[in-house]
Design a protein around this nucleic acid. Structure first.
Length: 462
DNA sequence: GCAACTGTTGCTTA
DNA sequence: CTAAGCAACAGTTG
């Protein structure tokens, strides 16, 4: 995962073996990794000796015994191992640089081929040009406060911005937010000076401890053949989604996407507010239940409303038409759509595969946008859309008088509506619910049930 | 069996 | 300018 501590570990490990080593001409198997002219790279490294190694943020630097240097960025999976010339594994080998008068060489393994390398004059900054200071070099947290305050982006995204401060990646950014008791979703311009100080202090202490632990070993990443990092045992949120928070012992660690990155946090310790997924069959009374949560101060969102909004969206309709031309005659035929959803299983799968991710994304955006508030999100097909993990708690709404409810709201096609029960896997997943609301009785009884849940959650949040 | 997800960054598009 | 989405790639997980 190479973030700063892992790259520092690589640097320390390689320093033991590389100082004074003379390169032979590099053998390049994946030319895409070399970001400066290939021929110069090969001829430039040949017969040069390594004088010292350096690290800036997540970049690794070899200083050669002339006026040039070599820069590596390992990105996601890049690994620099010293291996025997005839013993190196050939799978995912992007480059091999044999050592002169030695039986070993430096191998660059990179499964995903995202890693890059540069051959540059020592005075050229190259990719380091825009790089911000490391936390260790920031003497005053007001620098961070000033940088973050200017931005409307979520604080975690700003922590990942290497031009402001370098070194934090996805794992340590989550850990720093947790240690600082700050929501990763909070906008930069909302943070206080105390927040900024906390972020700087925790960045320094977490990175230092991680360096001491030789980084983290997660998934396939290892700094060298010999060294396995152990910082993963100190991780409090990253890789802990679903576990009870080790600090408050009240809620599970949650995980959701923020700008395409998995983001783990504790809703209580980091003051994000909790989120409820409200689900149930058609006509069960979900909307009414959700509206009661609103009465108790919750922010609410309905995925049905989102679907209606999507059907007004020309871009969505265009995408839909491209994927499912059959339901356009020539305009979207909702009756035909309902019929096909009920009768054609293959069509339904495909349609759901198109629609559910959009719903999931919209719900996620709503939750992130309403950071700090408690939220109730109505999702009729929550289980089918596999959104169980997207909420703090799951609330089921049940009734034995579905048809009465549908009649009450003036539904014309009750029997057709009820057919949709067959494609809702609520019953199969009922045991996953944290709360069940029953809506057979008077409305006031439902409101009382909602109030009970609201109070229980308020106690947990303190 | 397919879709989503994975540690990073930079470029394109609106 | 910002913001979002995608691209680079290949393997693992549900």
């Amino acid at each position: 995962m190479p973030e700063l501590p892992e790259v520092e570990t690589v640097k320390r490990e390689l320093t033991k073996h590389l100082i004074g080593i003379t390169f032979e001409e590099p053998i390049i198997y994946y030319a895409g990794m070399i970001k400066t002219p290939l021929k110069e790279y090969q001829s430039g490294l040949k017969a040069k000796t390594i004088e010292s190694l350096d690290r800036k943020g997540k970049f690794l630097i070899f200083n050669l015994n002339d006026d040039h240097k070599v820069i590596f960025h390992l990105r996601m999976e890049g690994k620099l191992f010293i291996v025997d010339k005839k013993n190196h594994s050939s799978s995912h080998l992007s480059m091999f640089i044999p050592f002169k008068n030695k039986k070993e060489g430096l191998a660059f393994y990179d499964v995903r081929k995202f890693g890059v390398s540069y051959y540059l004059k020592k005075e050229d900054l190259g990719p380091l040009e825009e790089l911000g200071p490391e936390p260790f070099d920031i003497k005053d947290s007001s620098y961070l406060f000033d940088s973050y305050s200017k931005s409307n982006k979520p604080i975690k995204e700003l922590l990942l911005d290497q031009t402001i401060m370098s070194g934090l990646g996805n794992i340590y950014a989550d850990e720093v937010c947790f240690a600082s008791r700050i929501s990763p979703f909070m906008k930069g311009n909302m943070i206080t000076k105390e927040n900024a100080k906390s972020i700087l202090d925790n960045s320094i202490s977490i990175l230092n401890l991680a360096i001491k632990s030789h980084g983290s070993t997660v998934r396939s990443y290892k700094a060298s053949q010999e060294v396995s990092g152990s910082f993963q045992k100190y991780l409090k949120v990253y890789s802990h989604q679903g576990d009870e928070c080790s600090v408050c012992h009240t809620f599970k660690i949650e995980k959701r996407r923020l700008n395409g990155r998995g983001t783990s946090y504790c809703p209580k310790c980091q003051h994000t507010g909790i989120s409820l997924g409200i689900t149930g069959k058609i006509g069960s009374g979900k909307s009414l239940a959700t509206s009661y949560f609103k009465d108790f101060g919750y922010k609410v969102f309905s995925s049905d409303d989102e679907i209606h909004r999507l059907y007004q969206d020309p871009d969505f309709l265009l995408g839909l038409k491209k994927k499912f031309p059959a339901i356009f005659t020539p305009y979207l035929d909702k009756t035909l759509l309902s019929k096909m959803l009920l009768e054609d299983k293959t069509f339904r799968r495909k349609f759901e595969g198109f629609l559910y991710p959009l719903i999931r994304k919209a719900c996620n955006e709503f939750i992130i946008e309403n950071d700090g508030f408690n939220k109730a999100v109505e999702v009729p097909l929550l289980f089918d859309a596999r959104m169980q993990k997207d909420f703090t708690y799951l609330v089921g709404v049940e009734t034995t008088i579905q048809d009465t409810h549908l009649e009450e709201r003036g539904d014309k096609n009750i029997s057709d509506r009820l057919k949709f029960n067959s494609i809702n896997s609520y019953d199969k997943h009922r045991h996953e619910l944290d709360f069940v609301l029953t809506t057979n009785g008077p409305k006031s009884a439902l409101k009382d049930q909602v109030e009970k849940i609201v109070k229980e959650i308020a106690v947990k949040l303190n």
